[in-house]
């Protein structure tokens, strides 16, 4: 009997304490957007890795180790999303053609569907660099987002910008600490090719007007090698080699009002250096749906579901009158759909 009781007690002890993440920013009082990144259907290995990269990118307000099962459907995730305060879904899928990324707002939509014609994983990007950078605490704060080139387009692009702006928590200029801005996500829309370049960089600040040697010395706390120098003053005055001539662009220089780190102090100026972390994506907006992966189609790139484009096609057909021309256009459409 006593043993049984012990077991019971132990069982009670084991109940894990779930610490709830705050749903509201404690300084500004804004609602913090949270996200789930998961896949629909079976993904090949490289796309699985991309999914993990995306989760890391969406840190810290995401489920990094979200477990998916084959039988989980969208509704399951939606059911969990409500109580957890999850506001956005990022869904990766791999149909027979190109891999797709869907960005959806829960619980009612809208859903943006992107094709991914090209992608490179974070590991690929790091492998391409001579010195990949990943300082501690890089992923503890959510990234900034920069959207560029979206202003020129139509309504669908505006919706895209709003979607991506709201996927990360808003920044309050008055209270934000610049030292917490460590990453940036760039979305650059090219109106000619209609492709969106998706990049992920880490932000680094370097004091301006200091030689490389001294910068390294202050940063590393290592005893420098003075064998080649005649005097100690040479270490300070003598110009180094190579990369030092790489002048900091004036556009990338910021004058600081508060201390950022030990190296970047308040009255000095600092240059902003970006280094890519990855993943690197090229996106193409294909479709916008009203609901969560369902509902009416607001925008469609290929114009099958969109009534407006259909109407224009019909007009074309009537005006041209030639059967051959019609067939050609139809063929073109078919190729695009594939």
């Amino acid at each position: 009997m006593a043993r049984l009781r012990n077991i019971k007690r132990r069982m009670q002890m084991k109940v894990p304490v779930v610490r709830k993440q705050p749903t509201v920013d404690h300084v500004t009082g804004d609602k913090i957007p949270k996200s789930f990144v998961f896949s629909r259907g079976k993904l090949p290995g490289s796309l699985k890795q991309l999914e993990l990269d995306f989760r890391k990118l969406m840190m810290p307000h995401t489920a990094l180790r979200l477990k998916e099962k084959k039988r989980n459907n969208l509704k399951d995730f939606l059911d969990v999303a409500g109580p957890m305060g999850v506001t956005h879904f990022l869904l990766l899928s791999k149909p027979k053609s190109l891999p797709h990324l869907r960005v959806a707002r829960t619980p009612h939509g809208p859903t943006l569907t992107f094709e991914i014609p090209e992608y490179a994983l974070a590991a690929d990007v790091a492998r391409a660099q001579t010195r990949p950078r990943c300082p501690q605490g890089l992923f503890t704060k959510s990234p900034l987002i920069v959207l560029s080139g979206f202003g020129s387009g139509g309504q669908h692009l505006k919706l895209t910008t709003i979607m991506f702006q709201n996927i990360f928590p808003a920044i309050d200029i008055y209270t934000v600490k610049l030292s917490s801005c460590q990453r940036i996500v760039l979305l650059n829309y090219n109106s000619d090719t209609k492709l969106i370049d998706f990049r992920h960089y880490s932000i680094r600040l370097q004091p301006v007007g200091v030689t490389r040697r001294i910068r390294k010395f202050v940063h590393n706390h290592k005893v420098p090698d003075l064998r080649s120098l005649q005097d100690v003053s040479d270490f300070v005055t003598k110009a180094g080699y190579g990369s030092e001539s790489e002048a900091d662009e004036e556009s990338a220089i910021v004058s600081l009002s508060t201390d950022l780190s030990r190296v970047n102090r308040a009255p000095t100026k600092s240059a902003i250096k970006l280094q890519e972390i990855g993943p690197r994506l090229t996106l193409k907006l294909v479709k916008i749906e009203e609901g969560l992966c369902s509902g009416g189609v607001i925008f469609s790139e290929y114009g099958q579901e969109n009534s407006q484009t259909e109407a224009t096609e019909d007009k074309k057909a009537t005006t041209e009158g030639k059967n051959e021309a019609n067939e050609e256009t139809k063929d073109d459409d078919g190729e695009e759909d594939d």
Binding site: P44, G45, S46, L47, K94, S97, L98, P99, I116, P117, E118, Y119, A120, L121, D124, V125, R127, A128, Q129, L144, V146, S148, C181, I184, L186, N188, D197, R199, Y201, I203, E249, S251, A252, I253, V254, I272, L274, E276, R280
Partner: peptide, 28 residues
């Protein structure tokens, strides 16, 4: 399975530099 997967051959080509400059502008 590999469709679309591209390993970047040269890390900093002109396009990447342009994108970095755009992002830098935003950060500044």
């Amino acid at each position: 399975a590999k469709t679309g997967h591209v390993t970047p051959a040269s890390f900093l080509d002109t396009k990447e530099k342009l994108l970095i400059s755009v992002a830098t502008k935003g950060v500044v």
